[in-house]
Simulated scan of single mutants.
Amino acid sequence: MAIRWSWASPRIALIPALTTTAVAFLGAILWTIWISFTRSRRFPEYTIDLSSWSRQYERLFNDSSWTTALGNILILAIGNALAILFGFILAAMIEREKRGEGFFRTIFLYPLALSLIVTGIAWRWIFNPDLGVQNFLRGLGWESANFNWLADTRTAMYGIILASIWHGLGFYMALMLAGLKSINSEIWSAARLDGVSLWKFYTEIIIPMMKFTFLTCAILLSLGVVKTYDIVLAMTNGGPGTSTWTPAYFVVNSFGARGNIGYASAAAVIMLLMTAALFLPLMLVTAWQARRREERA
């Protein structure tokens, strides 16, 4: 009886959490998918017109604002990938130079303590031509200095990327540093004795050994990019025009400003599919690599 209770008790304890997940998470997803096939506007309607069930999706992919949002996601993904690269470089530098490791780790992790809203506001001040870098440079005599990126449709996204990299750099550095510390110290000693160049040592030995760390960073980056909203709201509020809209911003705008819950639900469903398309392959690769490692062990 004691054995049976020890088997059943943890499963009984999980019932409230599983119920909450099923109702609040899976239920909300199914509800959103259903609403996306209806003609719902400010208030939800639950009748699906089979003659025009794809109406919201057809409107969505003919909307230039949605096309801009999808393009911006690609730009954000490529730009924010630099945070992983720079994070690895910083981690390698800190790992090689042991002195001051705690100090530099704290300095680079500090931006992570700030919310994306606060980060966005701070960087909006930095890009402000009357208060930020442009005003400072012109005060030094560089009259042609132009750092008003957020006012230009061609450079506004790059300003958001710069702020995003600053915010997330310390996090990826910490992950990379943990990965570097997990490598056997004898490998470092053997490479030095064999006279392996620093470039070959990292590109041919260290980076392949850290593939799981890079995969983890890629998964977290992809999830963060798809749901980018806070920093866009704080820095540009989607402007100039719609040049910095992202899918998450599009969803909130469709529901809040346009008052169209069916249209917003269709965009949210596409966001869900994008997340699954990015997340699931990376998870499958990670699981496959982990299984191969276990089989070799």
Rank of each mutant, 00 (worst) to 15 (best):
M271C: 06
K181T: 10
F127H: 15
V23H: 03
S51K: 07
F86S: 04
P281Q: 01
T213W: 04
L150Y: 14
F103G: 00
A191M: 00
M1S: 09
G100L: 01
V23I: 12
V226D: 04
L273G: 11
A264T: 12
A28C: 11
I126P: 08
R292W: 12
V269H: 03
S189R: 12
I84F: 06
L82F: 09
N148M: 06
M173L: 15
E294W: 07
F43N: 04
M173C: 03
G139C: 10
G141E: 13
S182H: 09
A113Q: 09
S189I: 02
S185H: 15
N237K: 13
A81P: 00
G71F: 10
L131F: 15
Y46I: 12
K227L: 04
W123S: 11
A218D: 04
I270M: 06
E95V: 00
S36H: 04
F25Q: 08
I161C: 03
T286A: 13
D49T: 12
T153L: 03
N146K: 13
W188C: 02
R4T: 00
G102C: 07
S36R: 04
W188E: 05
R105A: 09
F214R: 06
V225S: 02
I207F: 14
S222K: 01
T67K: 05
N146H: 14
L137F: 09
N253A: 10
S36V: 05
L50H: 08
R192H: 04
L177Q: 04
L50E: 07
A264V: 11
L162V: 03
S64C: 01
W149H: 09
I270Y: 05
I207W: 12
P247V: 12
T228C: 06
D49S: 13
I160D: 09
V232Q: 13
T19F: 14
R11Y: 15
I33L: 07
W123E: 10
W7Y: 09
I165S: 02
Y158L: 01
T286G: 09
T32L: 04
A13L: 13
V133M: 13
F61C: 08
M1R: 01
